[in-house]
Design a binder for these strands. Structure first.
Lengths: 330, 330
DNA sequence: TTAGCGGCAGCAATCGATTGCAATTAATAT
DNA sequence: ATATTAATTGCAATCGATTGCTGCCGCTAA
């Protein structure tokens, strides 16, 4: 069913049908009704490719996620997609994978489908190769970065203040009398750098110097990664009484190792994770976690997106405050 | 950058450029190279809307998921998207939500974007309204159903034999000397009906009649749902020594209630979940779970999809065997 | 009676590709 | 030298919409 067939049936030209479809003036009232009935009758759905071709608006926003299997990312995509759907935009959720080739391919896909904007989640966009790809293929496309920022005209970013968040976590452990606090952090990204910085500041507030801190870097972002790191930690510093992990899942693994060593949580060692994911509710004991406001970030991004697509302006950079959700592990 | 601009620069017509882009014969070798260099130079990416308009192939497959936040569904989408990407197809992942209106809207979206096939995951497609929508808007589109089947010409389905799987779970508990076994099942769907049937058969094999079975239906698919159901179970049947839950997350909640009642797992009560999700690895004790072969199902669906899109034929219905992954809870 | 105007409808160009067919050219055979 | 054939190349139609512009009709005012 095309507008031409509808037009023929109604005895008018395609122009009129198009005007009816798009609620534009210039069509007689009765004819409008007649056409609407035909549209209804034949379950007419416009061909978005044809429409996009002439109007050059695709009503399409690309959401690039490093790994859609990661809980917090997919939840973010979910919120953004829902918000955009209300504005008649459609989200193209793409799993970018971790190689630059895959990422560039995704960016080309966006271009190929004329995406009007792109949202980046995770560390997808960090490498130079990807930035080049963006500049080459999406030069005038507004880019929205979740938990990150690049200082360029078309780039908008939402960040949660994980630095102060982690510092708060340290302070909280301090208030509970913990002094020998370790920190597990995953692969280096801007986000993990902020977290590390927060840890250092927090410990400084407790009177500890950066040199002597127990920071375990490059911990794999999995339960096993946390488990192994904690084994090492317990061997090297058996007097540890507090642990902060840059991801909940790492904390889950770490707690297993701590419990296995015969220590109690939070009695002997208190543990805090980050993300406030569903894992935090499921592990035993339930995990205290720094909520980095994924939900709010996504809502904010979605609003920014809609504003920009509507031609309104927004500030390029927004900072969100984090909060600690306290559970049994502290 | 359009083919016309490339053509002008190369001093040929758009036709030749198009032939080069699509690797078609009929272009002089040197000219072909020259055009390829220009394509490269200007980072040319074809406009898929224009291309789709004339060829009427969108290279697009819709994946409809009731709730993309559900681990196993999004993992499924991940596998399918990866497999299809290798065949130059692009996946449109849509969160259908739970109302018929939302679902119909998603189906219209597929039509609007000329999706060449649709994959349905979760109970998305069960209601009559949705089936009508499919018939109206996607009459000739092949539909692939994950863990389900409808007997129609264009419909393909992959099912895992959860019935026998659950029966096996019962048998396994039986072998461990458990006899007082309860079953928690979520909202009624074809899948949960199969599971229930499997439970009944399994118990029959242990010599139990259907009438006296402890089947708790309509348990909410969340940790809290499992927790509340288990509280009821323990109150009504304190002698319970085995529990099978239709979802891992339900089992996680149930285990909390069981532990809180002072019982040990698996000593007093053995627990089994379904899905073999990451939750099964994170809860304490780690959960024995029936692996319903999400991964294999997705791979199978993706293969079927590619076959059908290539014009090859496949059998409409495939059955996969499940397997029990044994962990600490049994 | 005629100029002016507003409402409605359609023509035709356009978006960026693809592709069948005809035209041109060069190479080979007769 | 002419006919035959194959290899290139371009023309023009097409896909399914949108939209500026023109034309027509009927009504009102001078």
């Amino acid at each position: 069913m095309t507008i031409y067939e509808i037009a023929r049936e109604a005895g008018v030209s395609a122009s009129s049908v198009s005007r009816v479809i798009n609620n534009k003036p210039g069509v007689n009232k009765q004819m409008r009704v007649k056409i609407q009935q035909l549209l209804e009758k034949y379950h007419y759905v416009p061909n978005e490719a044809a429409r996009g071709l002439v109007t050059s608006n695709s009503k399409l926003v690309g959401v690039l996620i490093a790994d859609i299997r990661a809980q917090h990312h997919i939840r973010g995509a979910y919120h953004i997609a829902n918000e955009l759907a209300r504005h008649n935009y459609f989200c193209m959720i793409l799993n970018t994978g971790n190689s630059d080739e895959e990422r560039t391919a995704c960016i080309q896909l966006l271009r190929q489908r004329q995406a009007e904007a792109a949202v980046l989640m995770g560390s997808t966009f960090r490498t130079a190769a990807v930035q080049v790809a963006i500049e080459q293929f999406l030069p005038d496309t507004p880019i929205f970065i979740m938990n990150g920022f690049i200082d360029l005209p078309n780039v908008y970013g939402v960040l949660s203040d994980e630095r102060w968040g982690i510092a708060d976590c340290v302070a909280m452990l301090g208030r509970k009398g913990k002094r020998s606090i370790a920190f597990f952090v995953d692969q280096p990204t801007p986000s993990s750098a902020l977290k590390t910085e927060g840890f250092i500041r927090g410990m400084a507030a407790l009177g500890r110097e950066e040199a002597g801190l127990w920071i375990y870097r490059d911990v794999e972002g999995s339960q096993n990664g946390g488990y192994e790191a904690a084994k090492r930690l317990l061997a090297e510093h058996p007097e540890v009484d507090g642990l902060i992990c840059s991801q909940d899942i790492i904390a889950c693994g770490a707690m297993r190792a701590i419990q296995k060593s015969g220590r109690s949580i939070p009695g002997d060692v208190a543990v805090i994770g980050v993300d406030n994911s569903s894992y935090a509710e499921i592990c035993t004991p339930r995990l205290t976690s720094l909520d980095n406001m994924i939900f709010d970030s996504c809502v904010t991004i979605a609003h920014k997106l809609v504003d920009v697509l509507n031609g309104d302006s927004t500030n390029q950079r927004t900072m969100l405050l984090t909060s600690i959700v306290e559970r049994e592990s502290t």
